[in-house]
Design a binder for these strands. Structure first.
Lengths: 265, 265
DNA sequence: AGTTGTCCTATTGTCCGACAATCCGACAGA
DNA sequence: TCTGTCGGATTGTCGGACAATAGGACAACT
């Protein structure tokens, strides 16, 4: 998509059209966007402005090609951009594409790519979790409904009774965090959170498998947190979630995983 | 890109290959990924595994087509996906594409699309800022270098001396937050933060233009925060950043903007 | 030396046209 | 009501083509 070029603010404003100083070029670069970008931007704009809504089926490629007066291949390239951004998608086994809002998983995977490639380490992610998760728990304590409570209980239960050798225990941990996010009723935090748990998952899995007492500690923490959320006790929820996340770091130490381990794929 | 299908955890595990119960289907759906996805996934994998590094030039489309044994159009569709994800990019006026790490702006714009389309409101974003920004300020207070301090001061100065009627004052506010993020030395938080400020910017601009005293209050807050960061006083930094962000909401009230205003494009 | 003009090659952006696979809906048959 | 069959619509992929231009190499000029 066309990334909105964050214009360099402040500085370099005064020297307008007088002399052609090197640092303040006289001319702006002439814009020459390829057609596939224009097409994708045009469709993107219609989606963001709700002219095309979630669930609408897009016109067929040939028809789009006719409307834009470009070749079908060009339209297809534009569609691939939108598809990658999660703005359009194809229900499994369907032919036409439909407009969609980017799912959390899509956003999260984009974020994860960025984190991986920017050499973000475990501590970085953990630190972010230490910032976000306790507050989310506090919000959840205030806003939770019975449904949220059930979901939390279910996730905790699933973790407790999880077979010892199943490598997917970490998925259930993620489920707990996700349920907590849902209870917080804040979509922004949910989105941010999901990226964090997703990024942490692989190394967290190793930690859980390596440290014997980890499971018990996690289960205990989850129980305390749920109790606080049940009682709508925000402070307790915050406190225990804080302990819970902090415990991850202890776990990493015990597992001998360096805090500077980069987030893996 | 191929979003890693979060496998449905817990539940529906026991009933394996015995009877064909409706909830535990006997067969997995047969995978039929189009070629352009495979190509894009293959390249993506090479990038994430660092076999292709930031700055490397990709082989030419024709060559990729030969290697993958597909048509060039197919390769191009794959490249459009990667381009949209920010994993490859083309320096302005260059011909070949180069491998790149997704810039913050790219990730942020993806997040913003999601927020807009999920009808996220001003309070949601504001709430997330209330969670993140104070802690970022606290971290910055501990870790800031002189360079960070200079950047912060410069941003604050730029805001103070900004022409009254210039509509881009909000960009300078964003710059301040960005500098604070840099000082916190946590890339994860920086990424999350940027999405928030970007999402808030349009309405924040309206607020600043509508409420006369907003500029003064913002300038004051920035000064206090910088002072705390300068003195490496984390608690003060947190406290004043908290006040600062909270003030945004007051501003919105004064400007008559409803907290439920959806984030616009 | 530094600049400018010329030529060539590699590569991209875009187009044309084609064809098999298959999704979709309709419709007939059991 | 369920199951085959059929035709049209649409996608995935391909082969090939061509103009535009980025990147070099090299000569000509100041």
């Amino acid at each position: 998509m066309n990334t909105p070029q964050r214009k360099p603010p402040a500085r370099a404003r005064r020297s307008a059209a007088g002399a052609a100083t090197a640092d303040a070029p006289l001319f702006d670069p002439v814009e020459r966007e390829p057609a596939y970008i224009r097409v994708s931007s045009a469709i993107e704009a219609k989606i963001l402005s709700r002219a095309l809504r979630d669930g609408d089926v897009l016109p067929a490629e040939t028809e789009l090609a006719q409307q834009f007066r470009v070749h079908r291949s060009t339209v297809r390239e534009a569609l691939r951009q939108l598809e990658s951004a999660g703005l359009v998608t194809r229900p499994p086994g369907a032919k036409r594409m439909i407009v969609s809002r980017p799912h959390a998983a899509k956003v999260s995977s984009g974020m994860r790519h960025a984190l991986v490639l920017h050499d973000v380490t475990f501590v970085d992610v953990w630190e972010a979790m230490m910032v976000i998760e306790p507050e989310v728990a506090a919000l959840a304590a205030v806003r939770r409904t019975q449904v949220d409570l059930d979901a939390l209980g279910q996730a905790a239960e699933a973790f407790k009774s999880w077979p010892k050798d199943d490598p997917h225990a970490v998925d259930v941990v993620a489920e707990f965090f996700q349920a907590m996010g849902a209870a917080s009723r804040n979509k922004v935090l949910v989105l941010a959170k999901q990226s964090l748990t997703d990024a942490l998952a692989p190394s967290l899995a190793r930690m859980i498998d390596t440290v014997p007492q980890a499971r018990q500690r996690i289960a205990d923490a989850q129980r305390k947190i749920i109790a606080a959320v049940r009682d709508k006790n925000a402070d307790e929820a915050r406190k225990w979630m804080s302990k819970h996340v902090r415990d991850f770091q202890r776990g990493y130490e015990l597992a001998g995983i360096s805090p500077d381990t980069p987030i893996s794929v």
